[in-house]
Amino acid sequence: MERVASATPSPIAHSVRGLSDRAIAWVFVAPTIFLLLAINIFPLIWTIQLSFTNYKANRIGREVKNVGLRNYERILTDTDIWLNMQATAHFLFWTIALQVLIGFALAWLINKKFKGNDLWTTIIVLPMMLSPAVVGNFWKFLYQPQIGLFNYIISFFTGVEPSSFQMLGQVNLAPWSIVIVDTWMWTPFVMLICLAGLRSIPDYIYEAAEIDRASKWRQFWTITVPMVMPFLMLAVLFRGIENFKMFDLVVQLTGGGPGSTTELTSINLKREAFEKWRTGYASAYAIILFVTVFGLASIYVKALNKVKER
């Protein structure tokens, strides 16, 4: 009995400074909580507060007036902002669609047991490891109409003159140019998650299906797809949130142009906040984006949980 009792650790703090274990726990957690409050919660609250004012961050002395919901009203009725929203939706839809399709297909191929598939995985994953600034910059060269490899390859397959089109400079092509780069860079991420999903399906399930006389096609649709679906949806969630905030690649490639065809909401927001210095207005804008992405994500997570339960 006695040995059991002494083996149970007595409250460590007792011998230290008369602090209880609970107090020690707080001491360890405190720095994290402090940082979280300082760089997440406080700015959020401050932003909400600013969104109801006409505050301008470059005019420190100016009197700050409370304008109520006017900032929100102006944003939601601004047709230009709706265009930015549409550009963002277009970008989101196509990047996710392409990344899911190509990512799943690649994962499916890599999952076939062939020699050197580990090497291929490494090669495919490389783009994801580069800095977006670097990626943006070298795609700028690839898209260059006179010397760019991209234009050359397109012309090789279609016969169109390489210098006859500008991926980054033409209104109809620029949105696609950023979709292509984002897809190139982030498809590997979707592939990795799909691969994890595919590898989680045990072989014997396919053997059972083989015995049950299910064709490869039926095995794919009734076993592979449903069992990978939770993983795939998780990948879509990550990519969706990331791309809703897309900034770095677009700044490097088009800077929002030509005109405002590639001006995604985050680019537009940055212009309002740090070029026009309409801090109050930009705060309201940020809150609207935050609520949108948060709302969409929560609906999506609910759907994801439902799929997982199935």
């Binding site: 045990p202 014997y204 399930i205 053997e207 059972a208 299906a209 083989e210 015995i211 049950d212 006389r213 299910a214 064709s215 009734t222 076993i223 449903p226 069992m227 199935r310």
Partner: peptide, 29 residues
């Protein structure tokens, strides 16, 4: 192929389709 041989097999591990109901598992073949 296993399908052409028309055999039924019970595996040592329960190789059920985990995402399907019991009814759908039984109906699968």
């Amino acid at each position: 192929t296993p399908a052409q041989r028309n055999v039924a097999m019970v595996f040592q591990q329960y190789s059920l389709y985990p995402h399907l109901s019991v009814r759908d598992n039984l109906a699968f073949p």
